[in-house]
Design a protein around this nucleic acid. Structure first.
Lengths: 130, 130
DNA sequence: CCATATAAGTTCATTTTTAAGACTGATAAA
DNA sequence: TTTATCAGTCTTAAAAATGAACTTATATGG
């Protein structure tokens, strides 16, 4: 949820806090964890007094498909009669976004049954000994 | 992680338990929660003794883009030198899948900066009063 | 018949997390 | 001078997770 909000352009501690209603301590731990994981970075936006904001790194931006498809899933299955709380407009085509996961090589929609998982030898070994 | 495994065709309690090393109690709670949420369903596969497996419902299958893009993110940023533990082969084109999130209307790759979030009036109100 | 195995839990004691809310410190604005 | 803003930090109580053993129903092998 912190990350979802980060993609909604939320960047500052108190803004996250107000939006999520999460305990400040927990928010602090989460943000610190995300910074340590390299998903967010603290960028100062003023000195005197020193203040910084949390911005997505490239690694964080790479999570965009995850977040957007999760939000879309939530909108599909949980939106009330008024529709979803946030809609996303695709600037290039002007429409409300409906995200679809496709295969980069053939552009087809990816469906679970058309995708065959193949386990690495290392993983097979690890599962056997456990 | 339970759901990731479900998409890897894991369906039975003890298989989840062995793969995840999670406490049985917690696994039970999670599975029950997912069933209650309508993401999984219990399907008996034998009687005497009664045994059942957990299968993804349509709602659960709809989470495929979320899981697949999350796994892909993990593979990109955390895979060791041996490559990712599981590779996904797209049956229709034969290649290892590299998932891309696209806009259903224009087929373009969705990037955070090309997508404009628009808040519903209801949400704006809710944020103001809080 | 008896011991062991399997699947799917359940129970218990102990450790970890989380939550809610008050408090701090630096600075700016009224 | 009082109040507000931002980014935390502290404390205590409640909730959740952990690991290991225990249960129930049935099947299998000797």
């Amino acid at each position: 949820m912190i990350l979802r909000d980060a993609f909604l352009r939320v960047r500052r501690f108190d803004d996250f806090q107000a939006r999520l209603g999460i305990a400040r301590r927990v928010l602090h731990e989460r943000l610190a964890g995300l910074v340590e994981a390299g998903v967010l970075e603290k960028v100062p936006y003023q000195e005197r007094p020193l203040r910084h904001e949390y911005r997505l790194t490239q690694k964080g931006l790479d999570l965009y498909p995850v977040i957007l498809s999760l939000v879309h899933w939530g909108d599909t299955h949980y939106a009330g009669e008024d529709g979803p709380p946030v809609r996303f407009r695709h600037k290039s085509c002007g429409h409300t976004v409906e995200p679809v996961l496709t295969c980069s090589c053939c552009q087809e929609t990816l469906r679970p049954r058309e995708v065959q998982p193949e386990f690495s030898e290392a993983l097979k070994l690890a599962l056997k000994t456990a």
